[in-house]
Nucleic acid binder design. Structure first.
Lengths: 110, 110
DNA sequence: TCTATAGTTCGGTCGTTATCGAACTATAGA
DNA sequence: TCTATAGTTCGATAACGACCGAACTATAGA
């Protein structure tokens, strides 16, 4: 199963993860992804240009926040919740705690 | 008791807090402060120039991460752990979880 | 083979922020 | 009143990062 390389669990750096999350666009992606489970890039980026999209996904991937599984022409993204939980216990829960799933689903489907 | 203004609990913004924490110097300050409880600026900044120090404390204060109590010529800083816990449950714990108090104390006293 | 689709890479611009010296403010103590 | 101390403010510079158009790559499907 082809995929983008994801950094090793031990190499995940707190500063890098925080920087990745400390951006409105990327935090939005992460929160939507939490609700959706898995989604391709187009479903997560809204109306932004593809190059911006690609940039943000690269940051999230390289920081270790998400994993990208490539299937044909589509890139399926998902949060690396389990690994993040091992490395930084409670972090993602606290970030995602504010994300009301119902509200997010409403935003996503509109 | 004079002090710097700290933003209201409700105005604390996750992005702003994450950005404040996503800096090596500031994260170091926060982790030391967690161990020390309260400390003045000089004790937290190491060998950096005073203007840099002042900048980082301003960012941390304005984001709501810490509170500064002024006593004479000294500024006593402390984390706003309780308010942060109310607003973003689990966040600071996860950030500080990696901070081994013993290790930090050793660094601080060396 | 041709075309559409999904995403990447490249190059440039622009805004933000970290850094730091220098001047400044305010308090404590001699 | 004079001086030392603690921290702020100002102004400049430099680096980083977000943004975006354009060209490119790779796969699926007609």
């Amino acid at each position: 199963m082809p995929c983008h390389d994801s950094p090793d669990l031990k190499k995940l750096d707190l500063i890098t993860v925080l920087r990745a999350l400390a951006d409105p666009v990327r935090l939005d992606i992460v929160q939507r992804l939490y609700v959706l489970g898995e989604a391709n890039c187009a479903a997560l980026i809204g109306a932004r240009p593809k190059s911006s999209m690609s940039h943000h996904f690269q940051v999230l991937r390289e920081s270790g926040v998400l994993h990208t599984r490539i299937e044909g022409v589509q890139h399926h993204n998902s949060l690396r919740l389990q690994e993040l939980e091992e490395r930084f216990p409670g972090l993602m829960q606290s970030i995602l705690g504010g994300a009301d799933a119902t509200q997010l689903r409403r935003q996503t489907s509109s």
